[in-house]
């Protein structure tokens, strides 16, 4: 079961802060992050990589993106 972080409508650094919180405190290995701008997509990807997460999948989703992160 994956946790979903809904960061749509929020501008940076909120999506990154929310993603990092979930990476640090969440118990699920898989995290879905919803964002609505390319900037947020890039920032979340960069932040996740710096925390040792892999971005398994990026899908367009209703005008935004759905990122699937895997914690290690």
């Amino acid at each position: 079961m994956a946790t979903t972080v809904d960061a749509r409508g929020l501008s940076c650094p909120q999506p990154v802060l929310m993603t990092l919180d979930e990476i640090k405190s969440g118990s699920d290995k898989e995290i879905i992050v919803l964002v609505d701008t390319d900037t947020s997509k890039e920032n979340v990807t960069r932040a996740a990589n710096s925390q040792g997460c892999t971005v398994k999948d990026v899908q367009p989703d209703g005008g935004g993106y759905r990122l699937t992160l895997i914690k290690r």
Partner: peptide
Amino acid sequence: FLKKGYNLGRAQA
């Protein structure tokens, strides 16, 4: 403030 949860809220398309 950001660390403490400061947030301007969501924008709408």
